[in-house]
Design a protein around this nucleic acid. Sequence first.
DNA 1: ACGATACGATACAGTGTCGTTTCGTAAATA
DNA 2: TATTTACGAAACGACACTGTATCGTATCGT
Lengths: 210, 210
Amino acid sequence: MTETDVRRPGRPRNAQADSAILDAALHLIAQEGVHGMSVDEVAARAGVSKTTIYRRWPNKDALVIEALTRFKPPLRSFDTGSLRSDIERFLTSLQVMLNEPLIQMLTLRILSEVVGRPEWSRVYFADSISPNFTALSDMIDRARARGELRADADTQLVMEIFSGPLVYHMLVAMFLTDVKPFDTKAFIDLVWDGLKPFRTDSSGASPENT
Amino acid sequence: MTETDVRRPGRPRNAQADSAILDAALHLIAQEGVHGMSVDEVAARAGVSKTTIYRRWPNKDALVIEALTRFKPPLRSFDTGSLRSDIERFLTSLQVMLNEPLIQMLTLRILSEVVGRPEWSRVYFADSISPNFTALSDMIDRARARGELRADADTQLVMEIFSGPLVYHMLVAMFLTDVKPFDTKAFIDLVWDGLKPFRTDSSGASPENT
DNA sequence: ACGATACGATACAGTGTCGTTTCGTAAATA
DNA sequence: TATTTACGAAACGACACTGTATCGTATCGT
């Protein structure tokens, strides 16, 4: 912060280079993994020289860490007053996010690289997974206070029921060419009313069946 | 097959070496990934010489492919006459399987390595994911024929609802130390009866209704 | 015993990568 | 202009890895 005023002599650093390098690193990590990515490739993709990279980061690991730290999926909480529409918007934004090939592959790469390294794992969880959690649990807690949810439903389990199917869908969809898109509305209806067959119409929210 | 009878002259190959090498390769892939694993490490872990490996496989890729092909999670279909107990047994076996650290990390490694390589992806899907699918869809179709399931529930969506939450749970559990174990029974009850709050006792009371 | 094959240990060539260094040039300040 | 720093291009040393080759030994059939 104090450095911005004190103009050091000599040619200033190219400000665009930093983000160009980090973006290139992220794309290459997504494509080839941390091991498969070379610093030369990062330099070539970013359009800079390798010298420029090593002037900014001491080694490859530091570059990777900063690139991965910069990668934060934009997830937020919704508060429309209705849990069903909150969840619908949340899942829709999650679906849009997971439709990005970069985010898809990057997430898998990070998950597989991060396991077994406590520090990386802690940082990744705190930055990328935890916000997702709190956004979801906030919505659920608000709905529970409004009486929109079964009182005996465990919050963690409800979160897993909401998030799991879509994540699972996107995971297996990567291997299938003719997979049907995830129907968020139908999913919420089904989870809301239950999988059991109807005997009587207990609630008017049933999705127009029989 | 015909080679087993025709005994070639000379010292026969060590039959144990094959599985020792493939096992070593699998463990090393799980720990360090395909790129991180070296053939020398495989040889050292398997207790054989590198010559022995290259006499059996032409290159590293062939070894990796055969090792990954050999890795087939043992999942089967259940037919107890009740969908709820079928699913309960299915999920319990899936949970036991995903509790193995080797299978956990190997699955993530494979997922991240396999994406973008059509042949690998096809083989992995056919060998490891597809059996899971058919086992689950068989159980669901039988239940649907018995009228145990809502008629308007899409099979693919039901499969995702059943499998997704547990897979998601195991995924995030890798980053948490104090996570509650997945309660399969409570999960099935919740999904079966729905998340909506009870208004009148149209059916029994809670999970124990028919 | 003898030939044939497998094995372990080791060395090797070829390649790729990391991180450093050199050098000529560009862009800033004093 | 003189100085100071950043930059690109290129080369470099050190190291790891792949895949091959060599050599002495072990184990099988005949």
